[in-house]
């Protein structure tokens, strides 16, 4: 018996993923800008789902306030661009700003448990929203456009934004992938499985959670940056809306909480639903809420978690598995 991480399928698939990323990078060269804009939205959803899953799936931190960082990313971009910084540089700065702000917030937020953390984060997002509403330079309550983007020809602008989205998504997914596969990742998965047991074995739970929290701060900030780059207009009512948390929860719960692949599947699913029901509307949201609640109760491991369990399938392996003497495999 030996312990293995890779299987033939997972090697093929991981290699394939890199191929998909390269293929995606060619999309702006081939397709119209409205397709590119839609796919940018998909990448934003993937990024958001992966970040929320990093928090909840591995850190046991259920936040309904990640829109705080989305807002910092979006408004940070507008702020830096207004100072005369080139828009795409402003976007990088705003992402760094969101990550930097997540550190002091983590110092106190991570002391809260369960519902206190969830609603505490929500209140932090509300506070940020009020601060923006009080600032005339940021358009107060009525919103603001990223006018500096007008300097680019629309097709090029859409292509640049898509490439930025692809780069951000790739960077954060690869960072999470490598993090989960490192020795640190083993302790993170131990926390996911049983926080108290992990602590008693000497895992520094607080430090590990902080790492995830800051990563998610960066990632959600990047998503906010992409949102303003993709839509060119933001208002506090929508960018700080708790609806973002609803989307994140839906994607992660349906895809598979605490699995690497699940949130990506959840994001693709939500994207498909959004494209089908373009006018949105209450019924669509009733469906989202009910599905999320049902998955939480009846299928807590989500679609991918269930597939993984039943078939022993690993595509992007972050854990280990026991390989039997006769070549039969069991999930570890």
């Amino acid at each position: 018996m030996k312990v293995a991480r890779w299987t033939r399928t997972s090697k093929l698939f991981t290699g394939g993923t890199a191929g998909v990323a390269v293929a995606l990078a060619c999309i702006p060269l081939v397709f119209e800008s409205d397709v590119v804009q839609k796919l940018t939205t998909l990448l934003i959803l993937v990024l958001l789902a992966a970040m929320w899953n990093a928090l909840a799936g591995y850190g046991g931190l259920l936040s309904v306030g990640q829109q705080a960082f989305i807002g910092i990313g979006a408004y940070g971009t507008v702020f830096f661009a207004d100072q005369g910084v080139t828009p795409y540089v402003a976007m990088i700065l705003a992402t760094l700003l969101a990550g930097a702000i997540s550190l002091p917030i983590s110092l106190f937020a991570l002391r809260l448990r369960a519902a206190q953390f969830a609603i505490g984060m929500w209140v932090i997002a509300e506070v940020m929203s009020i601060i923006v509403r009080l600032d005339q330079n940021l358009g107060a309550g009525t919103g603001i456009s990223l006018i500096q983007m007008n300097q680019y020809e629309p097709n090029f602008r859409q292509a640049y934004t898509f490439w930025l989205a692809l780069a951000f998504t790739a960077i954060f997914l690869v960072a999470l992938f490598l993090l989960l596969r490192s020795p640190l990742g083993t302790s993170l998965q131990a926390i996911r499985d049983d926080e108290d047991a992990a602590r008693s074995l000497g895992v520094r739970v607080a430090a590990r959670k902080r790492l995830l929290f800051v990563l998610a701060g960066f990632g959600c900030g990047a998503a906010g940056v992409l949102i303003v780059a993709n839509t060119l207009f933001i208002e506090p009512g929508s960018v700080f809306s708790v609806q973002w948390s609803a989307y994140m929860i839906f994607m992660v719960l349906v895809g598979g909480l605490g699995t690497f692949e699940g949130p990506i599947i959840g994001a693709i699913l939500l994207f498909a639903i959004q494209t089908t029901f373009t006018q949105g509307g209450p019924w669509y949201l009733v469906g989202l809420g009910a599905t999320a609640a049902l998955f939480a109760l009846a299928l807590p491991r989500g679609l991918w978690g269930t597939v993984e369990e039943r078939l022993g399938l690993r595509l992007l392996p972050v854990g280990y598995r026991v390989v039997g003497a006769k070549g039969e495999e069991r999930a570890a």
């Binding site: 259920l62 809420g289 599905t291 999320a292 939480a296 807590p300």
Partner: peptide
Amino acid sequence: LTPLLATFGLSIV
């Protein structure tokens, strides 16, 4: 975490 997730879904519904 499940009661939070389930009641959040209920809230949207």
